[in-house]
Amino acid sequence: MSNHSQAHPAHLQHHFVDSDQQFDAAKMGMWVFIVNEILFFGGLFCAYIVFRAWYPDLFTMAATKLDTTMGAINTVVLIGSSLSVAMAIRAAQLNKTKWIKINLLITITLACVFLVIKYFEYSHKMHDGIFPGATLYTYEGIDHPLAHVFFSIYYVMTGIHAIHIIVGIGLMIWIYIRAKRNEFGSEYYTPVEMVGLYWHLVDVIWIFLFPLLYLIE
């Protein structure tokens, strides 16, 4: 703790006393942000629960239109990306800049794979006339007057999740560029850890979306 005898490290912002305080504050701020995200998605889950409790038949019927295989593959893809981002943090902690970059690239690739699969799912449905909202919805294969409501919920939940994925890709590119500039190491890897936390959260939300949307029998 004899920091005062040496110059402040470059990453330390002026209003913090030391790196530990800065790291702890950042991490706590991130967790408070995660609280936000949970309540944000919570609103959607609440709508889901209310409508599923009202119309269980609708959900059983409509869920058959969702492709379980693709959903399951995407789940595994996201788990893999969570693993690689955790590896990236580990690499940062151990001063292995090269491995930060490799693991981030793996994560970005897996995130893109997720989006591509999602794109195929969406386009397949839209081809059948399954659009979000009653205005555009034309599919007649589901014999329920409120079929469009299920798909509204489906699209808004997975859509907002996908937006989170896109934001995550952007963040990881930013982290990748900074890692390339050798900014991270065992002394300072706060941004890597924060983006990691964000990415795991996106994974956790998908872990709940998958069984609730795809696995209704």
Binding site: G133, L146, V156
Partner: peptide
């Protein structure tokens, strides 16, 4: 999320 759903409701007719 509420105003987002409201926007969608108005824009696309979500039915929620």
């Amino acid at each position: 999320i509420t105003v987002l759903l409201l926007t969608m409701e108005r824009w696309l007719g979500f039915g929620i």
